[in-house]
């Protein structure tokens, strides 16, 4: 069953005197437990799509249905609550609060929701343990490496048990080894907990971790790739590269 559905999604915005058509009618369904990657060159509309899927922005036309709820008709506060309860975000630049410790940063969505610390303290630590940050609960962001900061950010996205996690270039600000370990973490989370993940990336190696890849160009979906379960990572990577060449991306 589709946990997230985009229907004829279009987005235009004004840039000076020009109207930019960032998305020109995208239809997309994401199944529960699926790990989807969105790829495309700069300006293809992939970030716009991600923002619309996560309720950060309103489409010009079309709709996003998230876990049975249509986002297009919601007001700002309702959209905000939908994000709070149903969406987790992972950013390229981590976006942690420098004044808070790792566990406080992870707990932020719960904290904002007004839940009491005693209720969530254990859950937060368990998630930090799961992302490999056991024993670093009380470190502040400036005491953590880039990879560790991204792990905190991933834990923050997972902590509410959202319907979907949206990741915008999660490896974009990391070296390749650290990037790989972050991708492994996302993949494992999807496999072990059935978490639905949608990731925007430039990086074909990162995209190879996904179950399915959608290619975007000039605001349209121009291709889709998926593979059999038996395929190893390198083989998947070659498929991605070949597909991109074919699509002239």
């Amino acid at each position: 069953m589709a946990i997230l559905e985009a229907v004829a999604l279009a987005k235009e915005y004004q840039l000076g005197e020009h109207t930019v058509h960032a998305l020109r009618g995208v239809d997309l369904a994401v199944q529960e437990g699926e790990f989807l990657a969105i790829m495309g060159p700069s300006g293809s509309g992939k970030s716009t799509l991600l923002h619309l899927l996560g309720g950060l922005d309103k489409p010009t036309s079309g709709d996003v249905v998230l876990a049975g709820e249509s986002l297009a008709v919601l007001g700002d506060d309702e959209t905000t609550l939908a994000r709070r309860h149903k969406v987790g975000f992972v950013f390229q630049f981590f976006n942690l609060l420098p004044t808070l410790t790792a566990q406080e940063n992870v707990a932020l969505p719960l904290f904002i929701d007004g839940q009491s610390e005693s209720d969530y303290a254990e859950r937060v630590r368990a998630i930090l343990d799961r992302v490999g940050l056991a024993g670093r609960y009380d470190h502040k962001p400036d005491q953590l490496s880039g990879g560790e900061q991204q792990r905190v950010s991933i834990a923050r996205a997972f902590v509410t048990g959202p319907a979907i996690v949206l990741a915008d270039e999660p490896t974009g600000n990391l070296d390749s080894t650290t990037g790989r370990s972050i991708m492994e973490l996302l993949r494992r989370s999807c496999d072990e907990t059935g978490q639905t993940i949608i990731m925007v990336t430039h990086d074909s190696r990162a995209a190879a971790y996904a179950d399915r890849i959608v290619f975007l160009r000039d605001g349209h979906i121009v291709g889709t790739t998926s593979w059999n379960d038996g395929m190893d990572l390198n083989a998947r990577f070659r498929v991605v590269v070949a597909q991109m060449e074919e699509l002239e991306l």
Binding site: L56, L81, H85, G88, F89, F93, L108, I112, D113
Partner: peptide
């Protein structure tokens, strides 16, 4: 600004 953007994206309302 960016921090505020993050807080809004993870579910802080305008009022908050």
């Amino acid at each position: 600004t960016r921090e505020l953007g993050m807080l809004r994206s993870i579910g802080m309302t305008q009022r908050q």
